[in-house]
């Protein structure tokens, strides 16, 4: 059974590119009013134009998920505009790959701030409204790296994604029954996005690019389809985890 999500309201972080942008387009096509949030305002405006041209409804919010004040301000605007929020997609994330003995501590901290604290900040800002409504659906983007630790270079990224998986599971246990809020943890493998571009270590960057040329990565819209699938499940059904890989990725 598939339920219509027409008319629902969503907030998508990291919506300026990749999985977030693709999901905004798919949700909007299904009739969802999408609030697209990220730091790059010009990108958001372009996406908003595309959504509106296709007959959808969008609100662009310049928002930094590491900054609680910025997040609260954005969520306030969303609720003033649409009056409710049904779907939160915590999707903003970065993956600068490097080995520990390079001590790129600035990159480690940035991953902790965006990949973990960003999820917590946005969830904290949105949950009161969902609790009041006694309904809602939170999606968190973990990763295959949130299930297993790859070889050298992925220690901190994996640590942040294990955290997202753990937080998703704990959140689900607390808010599912009590507040009728669903929590879905999406765990993608390789997806063609801008994610590798944050890697500053030239060897690691070469390795990432080489892997991408060996395996046909997923399109961002494939992940968007998975989000739509989980969002369209009937209210009593919670797609709690969804692990999705390119067919050839071992």
């Amino acid at each position: 059974m598939i339920m219509s999500i027409d008319g629902k309201v969503a907030l998508i972080t990291g919506a300026s590119s990749g999985i977030g942008a693709a999901t905004a387009l798919k949700l909007a096509a299904a009739g969802v009013k999408v609030t697209i949030a990220a730091r790059r305002a010009d990108r958001l405006e372009a996406l908003k134009t595309e959504i509106v041209e296709k007959g959808g409804e969008a609100l662009a919010l310049e928002m930094d998920v590491t900054d609680m004040a910025s997040v609260e301000h954005g969520v306030k605007r969303l609720i003033e505009t649409y009056g409710s929020i049904d779907i939160l997609f915590n999707n903003a994330g970065i993956m600068p790959v490097s080995e520990i003995d390079q001590f790129k501590t600035g990159e480690w901290n940035a991953m902790v701030d965006i990949n973990i604290k960003g999820v917590l900040n946005t969830t904290a800002a949105v949950l009161p409204q969902m609790i009041e409504q006694h309904s809602g659906h939170v999606f968190n983007t973990s990763s295959i790296a949130g299930r297993k630790v790859f070889g050298p270079g992925f220690a901190v990224y994996s640590a942040t994604k294990f955290a997202v998986t753990a937080f998703s599971e704990g959140l689900r246990m607390e808010v599912g029954r009590k507040h009728n809020i669903r929590v879905t943890c999406i765990q993608p493998g390789g997806v063609t996005t801008e994610l590798p571009e944050q890697t500053t270590d030239p060897d690691k960057r070469r390795q990432l690019d080489a892997y991408r040329s060996q395996v046909r990565f997923l399109d961002s819209s494939d992940i968007a389809d998975a989000v739509v699938f989980a969002a369209q499940a009937p209210a009593h059904v919670n797609v709690a985890e969804l692990f999705i890989l390119p067919i050839e990725q071992a």
């Binding site: 607390e174 599912g176 499940a233 919670n238 985890e241 390119p246």
Partner: peptide
């Protein structure tokens, strides 16, 4: 529905695992 979602996805997309539970089931 989850079975159909898996099987009808395009060839390149492998849905390896879906945990699906009643919203009420902690």
């Amino acid at each position: 529905e989850a079975v159909a979602f898996i099987v009808t996805n395009p060839r390149r997309v492998a849905i390896n695992e879906i945990v699906v539970r009643p919203t009420d089931q902690a």
